[in-house]
Write a protein that binds this DNA or RNA. Sequence first.
DNA 1: CCTGCCATTAAGTATATACATTTAAAGGGT
DNA 2: ACCCTTTAAATGTATATACTTAATGGCAGG
Lengths: 238, 238
Amino acid sequence: MSRNTSQPLYKHVKKQMLDRIRSGKLGFGALVPCEADLAEEFGCARLTVHRALRELADEGFLERRRRAGTRVAQRASRGFQLSVSRVDEEVFARGEVYRYELITRVAATAPNPVASAFGIAPGAEMLHVVCRHWSNDRVFQTEDRWINTDAIPAAADQPFRHAGPNRWLLDNVPFSEVRHEIAAVAAGPEEARLLKLDAGHPLLQIRRETGWQGRSVTVAVLNHPGELFTLTSQPQAV
Amino acid sequence: MSRNTSQPLYKHVKKQMLDRIRSGKLGFGALVPCEADLAEEFGCARLTVHRALRELADEGFLERRRRAGTRVAQRASRGFQLSVSRVDEEVFARGEVYRYELITRVAATAPNPVASAFGIAPGAEMLHVVCRHWSNDRVFQTEDRWINTDAIPAAADQPFRHAGPNRWLLDNVPFSEVRHEIAAVAAGPEEARLLKLDAGHPLLQIRRETGWQGRSVTVAVLNHPGELFTLTSQPQAV
DNA sequence: CCTGCCATTAAGTATATACATTTAAAGGGT
DNA sequence: ACCCTTTAAATGTATATACTTAATGGCAGG
Protein backbone atom coordinates (compact mmCIF):
# COMPACT_ATOMS: atom_id res chain seq x y z
CA MET A 1 0.00 0.00 0.00
CA SER A 2 3.06 2.24 0.27
CA ARG A 3 3.12 4.70 -2.52
CA ASN A 4 5.86 4.99 -5.09
CA THR A 5 7.06 8.57 -4.83
CA SER A 6 8.43 8.63 -8.36
CA GLN A 7 4.85 8.47 -9.57
CA PRO A 8 2.42 11.37 -9.65
CA LEU A 9 -0.04 11.29 -6.82
CA TYR A 10 -3.12 11.36 -9.04
CA LYS A 11 -1.84 8.26 -10.83
CA HIS A 12 -1.38 6.52 -7.54
CA VAL A 13 -4.96 7.28 -6.61
CA LYS A 14 -6.07 6.10 -10.04
CA LYS A 15 -4.26 2.78 -9.67
CA GLN A 16 -5.64 2.21 -6.18
CA MET A 17 -9.19 2.82 -7.31
CA LEU A 18 -8.71 0.61 -10.36
CA ASP A 19 -7.46 -2.15 -8.10
CA ARG A 20 -10.59 -1.89 -6.00
CA ILE A 21 -12.71 -2.16 -9.12
CA ARG A 22 -10.80 -5.07 -10.58
CA SER A 23 -10.54 -6.99 -7.34
CA GLY A 24 -14.29 -6.79 -6.93
CA LYS A 25 -14.08 -4.69 -3.77
CA LEU A 26 -16.12 -2.24 -5.83
CA GLY A 27 -18.47 -4.31 -7.98
CA PHE A 28 -20.31 -3.19 -11.08
CA GLY A 29 -22.75 -0.45 -10.21
CA ALA A 30 -21.29 0.11 -6.75
CA LEU A 31 -21.23 3.63 -5.38
CA VAL A 32 -17.73 5.07 -5.05
CA PRO A 33 -17.10 7.33 -2.04
CA CYS A 34 -17.34 11.01 -2.84
CA GLU A 35 -14.29 13.02 -3.80
CA ALA A 36 -14.03 14.73 -0.43
CA ASP A 37 -13.98 11.44 1.46
CA LEU A 38 -11.40 9.90 -0.84
CA ALA A 39 -9.28 13.03 -0.55
CA GLU A 40 -9.28 12.62 3.19
CA GLU A 41 -8.54 8.91 2.93
CA PHE A 42 -5.59 9.43 0.58
CA GLY A 43 -4.49 12.54 2.43
CA CYS A 44 -4.50 14.76 -0.63
CA ALA A 45 -6.47 17.60 -2.19
CA ARG A 46 -9.89 17.02 -3.67
CA LEU A 47 -8.65 18.15 -7.09
CA THR A 48 -6.12 15.34 -7.10
CA VAL A 49 -8.84 12.78 -6.49
CA HIS A 50 -11.02 14.58 -9.01
CA ARG A 51 -8.45 14.16 -11.73
CA ALA A 52 -7.96 10.46 -10.98
CA LEU A 53 -11.70 9.77 -11.06
CA ARG A 54 -12.26 11.93 -14.11
CA GLU A 55 -9.65 9.99 -16.06
CA LEU A 56 -11.09 6.67 -14.95
CA ALA A 57 -14.47 7.90 -16.15
CA ASP A 58 -12.96 8.99 -19.47
CA GLU A 59 -11.55 5.50 -19.84
CA GLY A 60 -14.93 3.96 -19.21
CA PHE A 61 -14.41 2.47 -15.76
CA LEU A 62 -16.65 4.89 -13.88
CA GLU A 63 -19.80 6.85 -14.50
CA ARG A 64 -20.16 10.17 -12.78
CA ARG A 65 -23.12 12.44 -12.31
CA ARG A 66 -23.36 15.57 -10.27
CA ARG A 67 -25.08 15.20 -7.00
CA ALA A 68 -25.75 11.51 -7.71
CA GLY A 69 -22.10 10.56 -7.22
CA THR A 70 -19.74 8.15 -8.92
CA ARG A 71 -20.51 4.53 -9.74
CA VAL A 72 -18.56 1.66 -11.24
CA ALA A 73 -19.63 1.35 -14.86
CA GLN A 74 -21.13 -1.74 -16.38
CA ARG A 75 -18.52 -3.17 -18.64
CA ALA A 76 -20.86 -4.00 -21.47
CA SER A 77 -20.11 -1.25 -23.88
CA ARG A 78 -16.51 -0.35 -23.56
CA GLY A 79 -14.81 0.68 -26.76
CA PHE A 80 -11.50 -0.52 -27.97
CA GLN A 81 -8.97 1.19 -30.08
CA LEU A 82 -8.18 0.02 -33.58
CA SER A 83 -5.14 1.68 -34.98
CA VAL A 84 -5.42 3.04 -38.47
CA SER A 85 -2.23 4.13 -40.10
CA ARG A 86 -1.04 5.09 -43.48
CA VAL A 87 -0.96 2.01 -45.64
CA ASP A 88 2.74 2.32 -46.43
CA GLU A 89 3.50 2.46 -42.71
CA GLU A 90 1.42 -0.69 -42.14
CA VAL A 91 3.45 -2.57 -44.70
CA PHE A 92 6.72 -1.22 -43.41
CA ALA A 93 5.78 -2.30 -39.88
CA ARG A 94 5.44 -5.86 -41.17
CA GLY A 95 9.01 -5.67 -42.48
CA GLU A 96 7.89 -5.93 -46.06
CA VAL A 97 8.48 -3.83 -49.16
CA TYR A 98 5.79 -1.32 -50.06
CA ARG A 99 4.89 -0.36 -53.61
CA TYR A 100 2.17 1.94 -54.86
CA GLU A 101 0.41 1.54 -58.19
CA LEU A 102 -2.10 3.95 -59.74
CA ILE A 103 -4.83 2.26 -61.77
CA THR A 104 -7.10 5.10 -62.85
CA ARG A 105 -7.52 8.75 -61.99
CA VAL A 106 -10.41 10.54 -63.63
CA ALA A 107 -12.80 13.37 -63.05
CA ALA A 108 -16.20 11.73 -63.20
CA THR A 109 -19.80 12.08 -62.21
CA ALA A 110 -20.19 10.78 -58.71
CA PRO A 111 -22.72 8.01 -58.25
CA ASN A 112 -25.72 9.07 -56.20
CA PRO A 113 -24.73 7.63 -52.81
CA VAL A 114 -21.37 9.39 -53.01
CA ALA A 115 -22.85 12.67 -54.15
CA SER A 116 -25.38 12.65 -51.34
CA ALA A 117 -22.66 11.91 -48.78
CA PHE A 118 -20.79 14.94 -50.09
CA GLY A 119 -23.93 17.01 -49.94
CA ILE A 120 -23.67 18.12 -53.56
CA ALA A 121 -25.97 17.94 -56.54
CA PRO A 122 -26.12 14.54 -58.24
CA GLY A 123 -24.30 14.78 -61.53
CA ALA A 124 -21.54 17.05 -60.27
CA GLU A 125 -18.01 16.08 -61.25
CA MET A 126 -15.41 14.98 -58.77
CA LEU A 127 -12.20 13.09 -58.60
CA HIS A 128 -12.24 9.30 -58.72
CA VAL A 129 -9.00 7.44 -57.98
CA VAL A 130 -8.45 3.69 -58.07
CA CYS A 131 -5.12 2.30 -56.96
CA ARG A 132 -3.35 -0.68 -55.42
CA HIS A 133 -0.95 -1.01 -52.53
CA TRP A 134 1.55 -3.87 -52.69
CA SER A 135 3.34 -5.64 -49.89
CA ASN A 136 6.28 -7.52 -51.36
CA ASP A 137 4.74 -9.31 -54.37
CA ARG A 138 1.17 -9.43 -53.15
CA VAL A 139 -1.60 -6.89 -53.35
CA PHE A 140 -2.15 -5.77 -49.80
CA GLN A 141 -4.99 -3.36 -50.36
CA THR A 142 -7.02 -1.89 -53.17
CA GLU A 143 -8.36 1.61 -52.81
CA ASP A 144 -11.36 3.05 -54.62
CA ARG A 145 -11.74 6.66 -53.59
CA TRP A 146 -13.88 9.69 -54.40
CA ILE A 147 -12.55 13.10 -53.49
CA ASN A 148 -14.75 16.16 -53.17
CA THR A 149 -12.79 18.64 -55.28
CA ASP A 150 -15.30 21.24 -54.28
CA ALA A 151 -14.03 21.00 -50.69
CA ILE A 152 -10.39 20.29 -51.61
CA PRO A 153 -9.56 22.14 -54.82
CA ALA A 154 -5.85 21.34 -54.38
CA ALA A 155 -6.59 17.65 -54.93
CA ALA A 156 -7.47 18.34 -58.55
CA ASP A 157 -3.82 19.22 -59.22
CA GLN A 158 -2.42 16.07 -57.63
CA PRO A 159 -1.37 13.41 -60.12
CA PHE A 160 -1.30 10.61 -57.52
CA ARG A 161 1.18 8.90 -59.81
CA HIS A 162 3.85 7.95 -57.26
CA ALA A 163 2.05 8.27 -53.96
CA GLY A 164 -1.51 7.41 -53.08
CA PRO A 165 -4.30 9.82 -52.18
CA ASN A 166 -4.42 8.22 -48.73
CA ARG A 167 -1.00 9.56 -47.92
CA TRP A 168 -1.45 12.93 -49.57
CA LEU A 169 -4.75 13.55 -47.82
CA LEU A 170 -3.43 12.60 -44.40
CA ASP A 171 -0.45 14.87 -44.84
CA ASN A 172 -2.22 17.85 -46.34
CA VAL A 173 -5.89 17.97 -45.50
CA PRO A 174 -7.35 18.78 -42.13
CA PHE A 175 -10.19 16.53 -41.03
CA SER A 176 -12.47 16.49 -38.07
CA GLU A 177 -14.59 13.37 -38.40
CA VAL A 178 -13.88 9.87 -39.60
CA ARG A 179 -16.49 7.16 -39.91
CA HIS A 180 -15.57 3.57 -40.63
CA GLU A 181 -17.52 0.50 -41.54
CA ILE A 182 -15.92 -2.91 -41.67
CA ALA A 183 -17.50 -5.88 -43.41
CA ALA A 184 -16.59 -9.18 -45.01
CA VAL A 185 -17.62 -9.47 -48.66
CA ALA A 186 -17.04 -11.85 -51.51
CA ALA A 187 -14.78 -10.53 -54.25
CA GLY A 188 -16.64 -9.55 -57.41
CA PRO A 189 -14.98 -9.92 -60.81
CA GLU A 190 -13.47 -6.42 -60.75
CA GLU A 191 -12.10 -6.73 -57.22
CA ALA A 192 -10.79 -10.22 -57.93
CA ARG A 193 -8.86 -8.90 -60.90
CA LEU A 194 -7.33 -6.04 -58.98
CA LEU A 195 -6.37 -8.23 -56.02
CA LYS A 196 -5.23 -11.11 -58.25
CA LEU A 197 -7.61 -13.53 -56.53
CA ASP A 198 -10.48 -15.71 -57.67
CA ALA A 199 -13.96 -14.23 -57.64
CA GLY A 200 -15.78 -15.12 -54.44
CA HIS A 201 -12.67 -14.92 -52.30
CA PRO A 202 -13.48 -13.34 -48.90
CA LEU A 203 -12.35 -9.73 -48.57
CA LEU A 204 -12.06 -7.55 -45.52
CA GLN A 205 -13.68 -4.34 -46.69
CA ILE A 206 -13.25 -1.02 -44.92
CA ARG A 207 -15.43 1.87 -45.97
CA ARG A 208 -14.05 5.14 -44.69
CA GLU A 209 -15.76 8.50 -44.85
CA THR A 210 -13.71 11.50 -43.88
CA GLY A 211 -15.26 14.84 -43.08
CA TRP A 212 -14.24 18.33 -42.19
CA GLN A 213 -16.58 20.47 -40.17
CA GLY A 214 -19.65 18.45 -40.99
CA ARG A 215 -18.91 18.13 -44.70
CA SER A 216 -17.61 14.95 -46.30
CA VAL A 217 -14.36 15.48 -48.14
CA THR A 218 -13.58 11.96 -49.28
CA VAL A 219 -15.03 8.46 -49.20
CA ALA A 220 -12.96 5.37 -49.82
CA VAL A 221 -13.54 1.65 -50.11
CA LEU A 222 -10.47 -0.34 -49.12
CA ASN A 223 -10.33 -4.07 -49.83
CA HIS A 224 -7.91 -6.52 -48.28
CA PRO A 225 -7.56 -10.20 -49.03
CA GLY A 226 -9.25 -11.57 -45.93
CA GLU A 227 -6.66 -13.94 -44.61
CA LEU A 228 -3.68 -11.75 -45.41
CA PHE A 229 -4.67 -8.83 -43.31
CA THR A 230 -6.07 -8.77 -39.80
CA LEU A 231 -6.80 -5.64 -37.87
CA THR A 232 -5.50 -6.03 -34.35
CA SER A 233 -6.81 -3.91 -31.54
CA GLN A 234 -4.55 -2.66 -28.84
CA PRO A 235 -4.99 -4.03 -25.36
CA GLN A 236 -6.96 -1.79 -23.02
CA ALA A 237 -4.82 1.02 -21.79
CA VAL A 238 -4.57 1.08 -18.02
CA MET B 1 -14.55 34.96 -31.63
CA SER B 2 -16.93 35.78 -28.81
CA ARG B 3 -17.07 32.97 -26.33
CA ASN B 4 -20.17 30.96 -25.51
CA THR B 5 -20.52 31.33 -21.75
CA SER B 6 -22.57 28.16 -21.43
CA GLN B 7 -19.42 26.26 -22.30
CA PRO B 8 -16.52 25.60 -19.94
CA LEU B 9 -13.61 27.91 -20.53
CA TYR B 10 -11.09 25.15 -21.07
CA LYS B 11 -13.28 23.74 -23.82
CA HIS B 12 -13.44 27.11 -25.45
CA VAL B 13 -9.65 27.30 -25.44
CA LYS B 14 -9.51 23.76 -26.79
CA LYS B 15 -11.84 24.58 -29.67
CA GLN B 16 -9.96 27.75 -30.52
CA MET B 17 -6.65 25.93 -30.65
CA LEU B 18 -8.16 23.09 -32.66
CA ASP B 19 -9.47 25.64 -35.14
CA ARG B 20 -6.01 27.07 -35.55
CA ILE B 21 -4.65 23.61 -36.22
CA ARG B 22 -7.39 22.64 -38.61
CA SER B 23 -7.40 25.91 -40.50
CA GLY B 24 -3.70 25.59 -41.10
CA LYS B 25 -2.81 28.65 -39.03
CA LEU B 26 -0.77 26.16 -37.03
CA GLY B 27 0.61 23.65 -39.53
CA PHE B 28 1.91 20.19 -38.75
CA GLY B 29 5.03 20.51 -36.64
CA ALA B 30 4.46 24.18 -35.82
CA LEU B 31 5.41 25.46 -32.38
CA VAL B 32 2.42 26.42 -30.26
CA PRO B 33 2.85 29.45 -27.95
CA CYS B 34 3.68 28.52 -24.38
CA GLU B 35 0.96 28.10 -21.77
CA ALA B 36 1.73 31.39 -20.07
CA ASP B 37 1.38 33.38 -23.31
CA LEU B 38 -1.86 31.64 -24.25
CA ALA B 39 -3.21 32.24 -20.75
CA GLU B 40 -2.57 35.94 -21.18
CA GLU B 41 -4.08 35.92 -24.68
CA PHE B 42 -7.26 34.17 -23.53
CA GLY B 43 -7.32 36.11 -20.27
CA CYS B 44 -7.45 33.02 -18.08
CA ALA B 45 -5.29 31.04 -15.69
CA ARG B 46 -2.41 28.94 -16.92
CA LEU B 47 -4.03 25.79 -15.54
CA THR B 48 -7.03 26.35 -17.77
CA VAL B 49 -4.82 26.51 -20.84
CA HIS B 50 -2.86 23.57 -19.50
CA ARG B 51 -5.94 21.39 -19.37
CA ALA B 52 -7.00 22.33 -22.89
CA LEU B 53 -3.57 21.56 -24.32
CA ARG B 54 -3.17 18.38 -22.29
CA GLU B 55 -6.45 17.02 -23.62
CA LEU B 56 -5.54 17.95 -27.18
CA ALA B 57 -2.27 16.09 -26.65
CA ASP B 58 -4.14 13.08 -25.25
CA GLU B 59 -6.30 13.10 -28.36
CA GLY B 60 -3.25 13.09 -30.57
CA PHE B 61 -3.38 16.62 -31.94
CA LEU B 62 -0.36 17.95 -30.07
CA GLU B 63 2.96 16.69 -28.79
CA ARG B 64 4.35 18.25 -25.66
CA ARG B 65 7.77 18.15 -24.07
CA ARG B 66 8.99 20.06 -21.08
CA ARG B 67 11.17 22.98 -21.83
CA ALA B 68 10.93 22.24 -25.59
CA GLY B 69 7.31 23.36 -25.75
CA THR B 70 4.24 22.17 -27.61
CA ARG B 71 4.06 21.28 -31.28
CA VAL B 72 1.30 20.26 -33.66
CA ALA B 73 1.50 16.48 -34.17
CA GLN B 74 1.74 14.74 -37.51
CA ARG B 75 -1.61 13.16 -38.22
CA ALA B 76 -0.37 9.90 -39.65
CA SER B 77 -1.40 7.35 -37.09
CA ARG B 78 -4.50 8.33 -35.19
CA GLY B 79 -6.66 5.54 -33.87
CA PHE B 80 -10.39 5.25 -33.99
CA GLN B 81 -12.87 3.78 -31.58
CA LEU B 82 -14.90 0.69 -32.32
CA SER B 83 -17.60 -0.05 -29.83
CA VAL B 84 -17.98 -3.57 -28.51
CA SER B 85 -21.18 -4.46 -26.78
CA ARG B 86 -23.04 -7.45 -25.62
CA VAL B 87 -24.42 -9.28 -28.59
CA ASP B 88 -28.02 -9.08 -27.38
CA GLU B 89 -27.68 -5.33 -27.05
CA GLU B 90 -26.33 -5.12 -30.60
CA VAL B 91 -29.38 -6.92 -31.92
CA PHE B 92 -31.75 -4.89 -29.79
CA ALA B 93 -30.15 -1.67 -31.06
CA ARG B 94 -31.06 -2.78 -34.58
CA GLY B 95 -34.66 -3.07 -33.51
CA GLU B 96 -34.71 -6.82 -34.04
CA VAL B 97 -35.62 -9.76 -31.83
CA TYR B 98 -32.77 -11.53 -30.09
CA ARG B 99 -32.68 -15.25 -29.39
CA TYR B 100 -29.93 -17.35 -27.86
CA GLU B 101 -29.29 -21.00 -28.68
CA LEU B 102 -26.82 -23.29 -26.99
CA ILE B 103 -25.23 -25.86 -29.30
CA THR B 104 -22.72 -27.67 -27.11
CA ARG B 105 -21.24 -27.20 -23.67
CA VAL B 106 -18.55 -29.68 -22.64
CA ALA B 107 -15.48 -29.89 -20.47
CA ALA B 108 -12.75 -30.86 -22.88
CA THR B 109 -9.05 -30.89 -23.43
CA ALA B 110 -8.04 -27.53 -24.82
CA PRO B 111 -6.21 -27.62 -28.13
CA ASN B 112 -2.61 -26.51 -27.86
CA PRO B 113 -2.94 -22.90 -29.05
CA VAL B 114 -5.70 -22.29 -26.53
CA ALA B 115 -3.84 -23.98 -23.67
CA SER B 116 -0.72 -21.95 -24.35
CA ALA B 117 -2.73 -18.72 -24.44
CA PHE B 118 -4.12 -19.66 -21.03
CA GLY B 119 -0.65 -20.48 -19.79
CA ILE B 120 -1.64 -23.94 -18.59
CA ALA B 121 -0.35 -27.42 -19.29
CA PRO B 122 -1.47 -28.91 -22.62
CA GLY B 123 -4.02 -31.61 -21.92
CA ALA B 124 -5.72 -29.78 -19.04
CA GLU B 125 -9.50 -29.72 -19.15
CA MET B 126 -11.48 -26.59 -19.60
CA LEU B 127 -14.90 -25.43 -20.65
CA HIS B 128 -15.80 -25.33 -24.33
CA VAL B 129 -19.06 -23.66 -25.33
CA VAL B 130 -20.50 -23.36 -28.81
CA CYS B 131 -23.62 -21.30 -29.34
CA ARG B 132 -25.58 -19.18 -31.77
CA HIS B 133 -27.10 -15.72 -31.50
CA TRP B 134 -30.16 -15.02 -33.63
CA SER B 135 -31.51 -11.74 -34.89
CA ASN B 136 -35.12 -12.24 -35.96
CA ASP B 137 -34.94 -15.41 -38.05
CA ARG B 138 -31.33 -15.18 -39.09
CA VAL B 139 -28.17 -16.29 -37.34
CA PHE B 140 -26.43 -13.10 -36.40
CA GLN B 141 -23.33 -14.55 -34.79
CA THR B 142 -21.84 -17.90 -33.90
CA GLU B 143 -19.65 -18.12 -30.84
CA ASP B 144 -16.99 -20.76 -30.19
CA ARG B 145 -15.48 -20.09 -26.80
CA TRP B 146 -12.98 -21.64 -24.38
CA ILE B 147 -13.15 -20.61 -20.75
CA ASN B 148 -10.29 -21.08 -18.33
CA THR B 149 -12.09 -22.73 -15.41
CA ASP B 150 -8.85 -22.60 -13.54
CA ALA B 151 -9.10 -18.80 -13.48
CA ILE B 152 -12.92 -18.65 -13.26
CA PRO B 153 -14.15 -21.64 -11.24
CA ALA B 154 -17.66 -20.20 -11.10
CA ALA B 155 -18.01 -20.69 -14.85
CA ALA B 156 -18.02 -24.48 -14.37
CA ASP B 157 -21.38 -24.19 -12.62
CA GLN B 158 -23.00 -22.10 -15.33
CA PRO B 159 -25.32 -24.05 -17.62
CA PHE B 160 -25.34 -21.36 -20.34
CA ARG B 161 -28.68 -22.79 -21.37
CA HIS B 162 -30.71 -19.59 -21.63
CA ALA B 163 -28.03 -16.89 -21.79
CA GLY B 164 -24.68 -16.94 -23.53
CA PRO B 165 -21.29 -16.96 -21.89
CA ASN B 166 -20.61 -13.58 -23.50
CA ARG B 167 -23.25 -11.98 -21.35
CA TRP B 168 -22.45 -13.89 -18.17
CA LEU B 169 -18.76 -13.13 -18.43
CA LEU B 170 -19.30 -9.42 -19.07
CA ASP B 171 -21.64 -9.19 -16.11
CA ASN B 172 -19.66 -11.27 -13.66
CA VAL B 173 -15.98 -11.44 -14.46
CA PRO B 174 -13.54 -8.59 -14.09
CA PHE B 175 -11.10 -8.18 -16.96
CA SER B 176 -8.20 -5.92 -17.57
CA GLU B 177 -7.04 -6.63 -21.10
CA VAL B 178 -8.88 -7.38 -24.30
CA ARG B 179 -7.20 -8.20 -27.58
CA HIS B 180 -9.12 -8.40 -30.82
CA GLU B 181 -8.30 -9.60 -34.28
CA ILE B 182 -10.68 -9.05 -37.15
CA ALA B 183 -10.43 -10.92 -40.42
CA ALA B 184 -12.53 -11.99 -43.38
CA VAL B 185 -12.61 -15.74 -43.93
CA ALA B 186 -14.53 -18.20 -46.08
CA ALA B 187 -17.03 -20.34 -44.20
CA GLY B 188 -15.90 -23.95 -43.74
CA PRO B 189 -18.47 -26.77 -43.67
CA GLU B 190 -19.02 -26.56 -39.92
CA GLU B 191 -19.39 -22.77 -39.85
CA ALA B 192 -21.65 -22.89 -42.89
CA ARG B 193 -23.94 -25.36 -41.15
CA LEU B 194 -24.15 -23.27 -37.97
CA LEU B 195 -24.77 -20.05 -39.85
CA LYS B 196 -27.14 -21.70 -42.34
CA LEU B 197 -25.08 -20.49 -45.26
CA ASP B 198 -23.23 -22.16 -48.12
CA ALA B 199 -19.63 -23.15 -47.56
CA GLY B 200 -17.29 -20.48 -48.90
CA HIS B 201 -19.56 -17.62 -47.89
CA PRO B 202 -17.51 -14.65 -46.58
CA LEU B 203 -17.56 -14.30 -42.80
CA LEU B 204 -16.46 -11.45 -40.61
CA GLN B 205 -14.48 -13.23 -37.95
CA ILE B 206 -13.58 -11.64 -34.64
CA ARG B 207 -11.12 -13.42 -32.40
CA ARG B 208 -11.25 -12.04 -28.90
CA GLU B 209 -8.90 -12.87 -26.08
CA THR B 210 -9.80 -11.54 -22.66
CA GLY B 211 -7.34 -11.41 -19.80
CA TRP B 212 -7.26 -10.48 -16.19
CA GLN B 213 -4.03 -9.26 -14.70
CA GLY B 214 -1.85 -10.76 -17.38
CA ARG B 215 -3.63 -14.11 -17.51
CA SER B 216 -6.02 -15.14 -20.27
CA VAL B 217 -9.42 -16.08 -18.93
CA THR B 218 -11.31 -16.76 -22.14
CA VAL B 219 -10.78 -16.85 -25.89
CA ALA B 220 -13.64 -16.70 -28.37
CA VAL B 221 -14.08 -16.90 -32.11
CA LEU B 222 -17.13 -14.99 -33.27
CA ASN B 223 -18.38 -15.40 -36.83
CA HIS B 224 -20.82 -13.11 -38.56
CA PRO B 225 -22.28 -13.47 -42.03
CA GLY B 226 -20.18 -10.84 -43.77
CA GLU B 227 -22.83 -8.71 -45.39
CA LEU B 228 -25.27 -8.88 -42.49
CA PHE B 229 -23.07 -7.35 -39.91
CA THR B 230 -20.84 -4.30 -40.18
CA LEU B 231 -18.84 -2.83 -37.38
CA THR B 232 -19.24 0.92 -37.38
CA SER B 233 -16.74 3.18 -35.72
CA GLN B 234 -17.80 6.28 -33.90
CA PRO B 235 -16.85 9.62 -35.35
CA GLN B 236 -13.86 11.29 -33.81
CA ALA B 237 -14.82 13.05 -30.64
CA VAL B 238 -13.99 16.74 -30.70
C1' DC C 1 -51.49 11.22 -1.89
C1' DC C 2 -49.67 13.84 -5.21
C1' DT C 3 -47.16 17.95 -6.76
C1' DG C 4 -43.99 21.21 -6.97
C1' DC C 5 -40.51 23.78 -4.65
C1' DC C 6 -36.13 24.03 -2.33
C1' DA C 7 -32.17 22.94 0.34
C1' DT C 8 -28.32 20.12 0.03
C1' DT C 9 -24.95 17.29 -1.89
C1' DA C 10 -21.52 15.90 -5.14
C1' DA C 11 -19.29 16.73 -9.21
C1' DG C 12 -17.42 20.39 -12.47
C1' DT C 13 -14.82 24.45 -13.35
C1' DA C 14 -11.69 28.41 -12.44
C1' DT C 15 -7.97 30.91 -10.06
C1' DA C 16 -3.70 31.98 -7.57
C1' DT C 17 0.20 30.02 -5.87
C1' DA C 18 3.99 27.03 -5.27
C1' DC C 19 7.16 23.79 -6.34
C1' DA C 20 9.00 19.74 -9.28
C1' DT C 21 10.93 17.96 -13.51
C1' DT C 22 12.90 17.99 -17.87
C1' DT C 23 15.95 19.69 -21.12
C1' DA C 24 17.48 23.29 -24.46
C1' DA C 25 20.60 26.69 -24.43
C1' DA C 26 24.02 29.63 -22.52
C1' DG C 27 28.38 30.01 -20.41
C1' DG C 28 32.87 28.82 -18.80
C1' DG C 29 37.03 26.22 -18.39
C1' DT C 30 40.46 23.34 -20.49
C1' DA D 1 36.76 23.38 -30.54
C1' DC D 2 35.07 20.36 -27.06
C1' DC D 3 33.05 19.04 -22.79
C1' DC D 4 31.03 20.03 -18.52
C1' DT D 5 28.25 22.89 -15.57
C1' DT D 6 24.80 26.12 -14.79
C1' DT D 7 20.74 28.51 -15.85
C1' DA D 8 16.36 29.21 -17.08
C1' DA D 9 12.26 28.12 -19.82
C1' DA D 10 8.43 25.30 -20.46
C1' DT D 11 5.54 21.73 -18.96
C1' DG D 12 3.80 18.84 -14.94
C1' DT D 13 1.81 18.26 -10.45
C1' DA D 14 -0.24 19.62 -5.95
C1' DT D 15 -2.91 22.59 -2.80
C1' DA D 16 -6.35 25.83 -0.99
C1' DT D 17 -10.18 28.30 -2.16
C1' DA D 18 -14.31 29.70 -4.34
C1' DC D 19 -17.92 29.45 -7.14
C1' DT D 20 -21.16 26.86 -10.56
C1' DT D 21 -24.24 23.29 -11.97
C1' DA D 22 -27.11 19.26 -11.72
C1' DA D 23 -30.14 16.43 -9.49
C1' DT D 24 -31.86 13.99 -5.42
C1' DG D 25 -34.65 13.65 -1.64
C1' DG D 26 -37.34 15.80 1.62
C1' DC D 27 -40.82 19.10 2.88
C1' DA D 28 -44.77 22.04 2.48
C1' DG D 29 -49.02 22.96 0.46
C1' DG D 30 -52.77 21.63 -2.14
